[in-house]
Design a protein around this nucleic acid. Structure first.
Lengths: 126, 126
DNA sequence: AAGGTATATACCTTTATAAGTATATTACGT
DNA sequence: ACGTAATATACTTATAAAGGTATATACCTT
């Protein structure tokens, strides 16, 4: 992993918000979309950007794509993901996003987040 | 300090090399130039880029401008500067730059690096 | 096969960045 | 005042990135 590419991923607000969320656990695109309240295409492109640089991992589960942070990761990435926690005060969005995440997961029963490859039986996302 | 601006500074190889050097102590532009073996204008622009974002500090000493990393700095910056040490293996240039720095400082007597505002009496840089 | 939902890609436009050449600025020595 | 060294800025060009609109792909349900 190229550390410059890691920094490139971190130098955009939307990507920081995405990483901040995935740090807590996997999420499908539609949930990210709901939490971040951003257009689908914007999200999709930022996700592709980070996927291409190996910061995040996509796995398809039926109709949905679940994004997550791969487990054994680079030290720089690890450290900066950890930093995101301390940056909640610098970027109020981060804190709000996490609250919205909890709220959403409570509402839907935490399916997506709990398992990296959830078994979804209905046509409803989680 | 805006953490996104910190990451923007870190996502360029030349800037990483500059920060890696300044981490060890202040340096004037001409020494940076000698160590990094890059055109003056390139250096000057990257320094301006980081100066504008408060990552580095410029202080004039006679004919020279000494760059340094301000002392009480942001946690994210602090952490990533520290990370640079561990990234020596990821980016071999970093290690080589530090060696060239030592060599240069030995040659000139470590003037620039030792004092943030060195007293230079001759027209020779350090 | 057909239609719907979820996600990704193509294409366009605007803005940011990087690197180069030339020139300006600042401070020094004479 | 003049010349010179050190550094910064203006200008140009090329490339990357961000956001938008439209469209394509993948999978599911019927």
């Amino acid at each position: 992993m190229d550390i410059i590419q890691v920094y490139k991923c971190f130098c955009d607000k939307t990507r920081l918000r995405i990483l901040n969320l995935l740090r807590e656990g996997p999420l499908c695109v539609c949930h990210l979309q709901e939490i971040l309240a951003l257009p689908q295409v914007a999200l999709s492109k930022h996700l592709a950007y980070m996927r291409k640089r190996d910061l995040i991992l996509a796995s398809r589960a039926q109709n949905w794509v679940i994004y997550s942070i791969p487990d054994p990761t680079h030290a720089v990435l690890e450290e900066n993901l950890r930093c995101l926690q301390d940056c909640q005060s610098d970027m109020p969005e981060l804190k709000k996003d996490l609250l919205r995440r909890i709220k959403l997961l409570k509402k839907i029963g935490a399916n997506c987040s709990a398992a990296p490859e959830p078994v979804l039986q209905s046509a409803k996302c989680c």
